[in-house]
Design a protein around this nucleic acid. Structure first.
Lengths: 128, 128
DNA sequence: AGTTTCAGACTACGCCCGTAATCCAGTTGG
DNA sequence: CCAACTGGATTACGGGCGTAGTCTGAAACT
């Protein structure tokens, strides 16, 4: 069977962020890390961690009486899923319209333009 | 006060699609249009339409015994909202990483590449 | 050894969403 | 004029999500 994609919610992704930055970590440290950027209650963060475990988005390895948590879903996988979802849901699966949209409505910084050039250069190289 | 952004759900967006393609339309026609691409029950579609009305995403004008519905939220506004949401939630608000992601993980069709070139050309022209 | 503590498990609860079914009043067909 | 029909309004219901609170078992402190 194909692996079912792991869907995580907005709030859950904030917890994943902490793990993507550093892993493995004990829940105490995760709580502290997440609280740097949010005002969530410790209980809330632990609940989210538990849900992520249930979904298989993180793994837990026993370390004494506590667990050390690590991400299973990578940030890249998540970014891919979310990007593809936007592409399919909102732009009919075509990159063109999405890019056109960004070019019209988002201010592109110098770095963005450089990234665009790089992207195009890579494509052209591969093309022949 | 600033107008609060109108958030619509996935299913609701399917109904909006029908209205974006043609408006105004009576609910009967909307139902028929949506059913072309889905197997939703008529009642379901009417419920979604009602919710969209409640959210102010569509307007209804009485036309005899029925209403004629029209979109208030435009497709472009919606695409903007969703794009910005992805950008902020998943890519820290920076376009570069998003573009890098697409260049690495998405297969670009010829049309996409053309769109990219056009986009870059437009930028270069504006740049000087 | 008894008590306090704390990580993790289980429970809670209101709101949104997907997906309808039921109810009601005005229109229309007979 | 009465019955059937139909669009719209109201109600339903289970699952996920945001946001915790409570319970429990074992470790740690005294």
């Amino acid at each position: 069977m194909a692996k079912p994609p792991i869907a995580i919610s907005e709030a859950e992704s904030r917890v994943m962020e902490a793990l993507w930055r550093k892993a493995p970590q004990a829940s105490e440290d995760i709580v502290a890390a997440v609280q740097q950027d949010s005002d969530w209650h410790e209980k809330t963060i632990r609940t989210l961690l538990g849900r992520l475990l249930g979904k298989g988005a993180v793994s837990a390895e026993k370390d004494g009486r506590r667990y050390l948590y690590a991400p299973v879903l990578t940030r890249e996988q998540w970014q891919s899923q979310e990007s593809r979802s936007l592409l399919d849901r909102v732009f009919g699966g075509r990159l063109g319209p999405l890019l056109a949209h960004f070019s019209e409505h988002e201010k592109l910084g110098a770095k963005d333009v450089a990234e665009l050039r790089k992207l195009l250069a890579a494509i052209e190289k591969k093309e022949r």
